[in-house]
Amino acid sequence: MVTLSSDSRPIIGRGPPLGARLFFLAIVSIALMVLDHRGGYLDTTRSWLQTAASPLYAVIQAPFQAWNWLTGSFADRSRLRSENSELTDELRTARVKLLRFDALAEENRRLRAIRNASQGIGERTLIAEIVRIDVDPFRHRARINKGSEDGVFKNQPVLDAFGIVGQVTSVDRIGAEIILISDNEHAIPVQVNRNGIRTIAVGTGDIHRLSLPFLTIESDVKAGDLLVSSGLDGVFPAGYPVATITKVNRGPAETFAIVEAKPLAQLDRSREVLLLWFDPSKEKPAGNLAAEASAPTATSPAGNDAAATNSPPAAASTPASQDAPTARAPTRSPPPQPSVQAPGQ
């Protein structure tokens, strides 16, 4: 057959028998998997190995960078001009919005000062670029070009200009891997901006769709509602836009409504993302505020509060901060209705 070559002697009698070697390697693999999955003992090893793999990434990036450089340097004048005018327009509208925002922020600060609660607004950010690497077609992971050298850390929130993109899952020296909010292993605690109902938005594996499985059929949500992060997980800061609700389907025989939302961040398009540093300990008042804000309208959201608090914050949120439990306790809301069971854990 075609694959015959000079080195065709079988390997019988060289070293331990084949089966024994497979057994040994299988044991090592299983040990690795257990250590990595159950204990997370291999984070440092992973970061070293991924740093070692960075030349591969550099090789793949090179043609794209060369192309960008070429198109950038040979861009013609008219295109630059039109781009410039577009950007000027955008900046103008953004400034107008910012004016309003300034006023609101000022008012917010005053109100918070009255309530004797300060929320950390002075957050540090860093722009990172998504590296053009296909990690896995069925998982929504991406690599960015900033790593532990720039102070990136595990579970750091990642945003773009429109909303929350995801969080960092593993860091090596010059890069990091992020998980997008649409990955089906990801979940993020959110609240409806209109009335403060809290729940959890779970990724579906579809980049344009999040699912909100813990909203009862009586809960006051409707299509078009804005979902913002509630900050109860200690991973994401409170108040950043996450998604808009696209579909609410209430089956009269069901306990939970089928609610879907569309992520606001341009998960499939943005190449540049924002890494955020914030102090989760300062987020506690925000969580309490949210809890109290939702209390007055709490006839129906009570079940959701229970749902949101009972359900484990899934893969998304490591219960990092000790503040979380206190922030989560739905202090003033009435006890959950009997019809609402704890959702499937």
């Binding site: 079988p10 390997i11 084949l18 089966g19 070697r21 497979l22 390697l25 299988a26 090592v28 693999s29 299983i30 040990a31 690795l32 998997m33 250590l35 990595d36 999955h37 291999l42 090893t45 992973r46 190995l49 991924q50 070692a52 793999a53 591969l56 990690v135 896995d136 998982r139």
Partner: peptide, 26 residues
Amino acid sequence: VIKGPIFGQHAIAFAVVAYLTHKNQL
């Protein structure tokens, strides 16, 4: 390292395939 969710997953699958190949190579 470059795409797996955990270490050892693809490694063990590769080893099994190589074992079957070696076993039946002749």
